Amino acid sequence: MVLLGECCLSFITPRFLRPNSESNSLSDCVVEINGHRRRKRVHCLRSCELLDFHKEIIPYEKAWCLQKDIVREKKSEIEKEGDCNDTLIVLQHPSVYTLGTASSINNLNFDINNPPFHIHRTERGGEVTYHGPGQLVMYPIINLRRHKMDLHWYLRTLEEVVIRVLSSTFSIQASRMEGFTGVWVGDEKVAAIGIRVAQWITYHGLALNVTTDLSPFKWIVPCGIHGRQVGSIKGLLREAQSSCNNAHGKADLGGLDDDSLINITYRSLIEEFSKVFQLEYYHKTISLPMLCESEGKEVIYTK
């Protein structure tokens, strides 16, 4: 069981929330009508704990352990109460490679006995990927029973969050690529997605390259996809600035320092996530030293 410490509650109200017609979000809510409290079937915003470490570099194994502890807690809450609040964790990792359930070591372009970074084999779906500083990682731990019990819908919705962020904040036109999971700008993949769902509770999630050093991707075949490149928001903005292709006057974002670009992207990510999943956040603080230990986690190779 993870020790959560003191909670500091402060509500974040997104600027705009629109009911998602595909979302299974109708609930019985108590509303006040002409001074009388009545139960009414309406679109209710679900509560979501926001664990914000977006400025921190959190070891992969600690974040992995935290997710699994939260999943266990949510399963227990559902068993006792029939539902649970959702949770969103946002952070950065130190340089690390992770392997999903479909991963093959043939997609590692280095001596497996002398890896450049730690390698973790995980239970998420997908192939090998890289995490590192400058990449914002979102780990949604949500009860799909109260959204939509459809894994394809969930994957496409995570992609939609990133597509909206790139369009609304940076005027970057991103898209999906048929047959693959993730978000692309041209032939460059800017966001990778790998999930695990247990009893309709999600964990793992998505990784968006913001200011990431992309050179470690050269040591792997990212997501097992040959012949494709990996990109970042910073790189795309620089290209737009140099070619003057940004028709919306936002090319100057390419001149922002890395911390500012991370902060802007983080704010856009949590806002778009709240819109798409119809969530209202409250901050929950966890002291970093109180994150659980990584006992029992499989580290297959270490540097």
Rank of each mutant, 00 (worst) to 15 (best):
V2P: 10
L3W: 09
C7F: 08
L9N: 08
F11K: 08
R15A: 12
R15W: 04
L17D: 10
R18I: 11
R18N: 04
P19S: 03
D28G: 07
V30R: 14
V30F: 10
V30T: 15
V31P: 00
N34V: 02
R38A: 13
V42R: 05
S47M: 10
L51K: 00
D52K: 05
F53P: 03
E61F: 02
L66I: 07
D69Y: 13
I70Q: 00
I70G: 00
V71Q: 05
E73D: 11
S76T: 14
I78P: 11
E79V: 07
E81F: 12
C84G: 06
L88H: 04
I89G: 11
Q92V: 04
H93N: 06
H93R: 02
V96F: 03
Y97I: 03
L99N: 07
L99M: 14
T101R: 13
A102N: 15
A102I: 03
A102G: 12
S103W: 02
S104D: 12
I105H: 12
N107G: 05
L108F: 15
D111N: 15
I112E: 10
P116G: 06
E123M: 10
E123Y: 08
R124C: 06
G126T: 01
E127K: 09
P133I: 08
L136D: 02
L136S: 03
L136N: 03
V137E: 12
P140A: 14
I142R: 00
H147I: 05
M149W: 00
D150H: 01
L151N: 09
L151V: 12
H152L: 12
L155Q: 08
L158N: 06
R164E: 15
V165H: 04
V165R: 09
L166V: 06
S168A: 13
S171K: 10
S171E: 08
Q173W: 00
S175P: 07
S175N: 15
F180L: 13
T181K: 13
G182Q: 10
G182V: 13
V183G: 03
E188G: 03
V190L: 12
G194C: 08
I195P: 01
V197Y: 04
Q199I: 01
W200M: 03
I201A: 06
Y203T: 13
L206P: 05
L206G: 03
V210D: 05
D213W: 00
D213T: 03
P216I: 02
W219Y: 13
G224I: 09
I225K: 10
H226V: 14
H226M: 11
H226N: 14
R228V: 10
Q229M: 09
S232F: 05
L236D: 07
R238K: 14
E239Q: 14
E239D: 11
A240Y: 03
S242Q: 14
S243F: 08
A247G: 11
K250V: 13
A251W: 06
G255K: 05
L256K: 11
D258L: 01
I262Y: 00
I264M: 15
S268I: 07
I270W: 06
F273W: 06
K275W: 07
K284F: 05
S287N: 15
P289L: 04
E295Y: 07
Y301D: 02
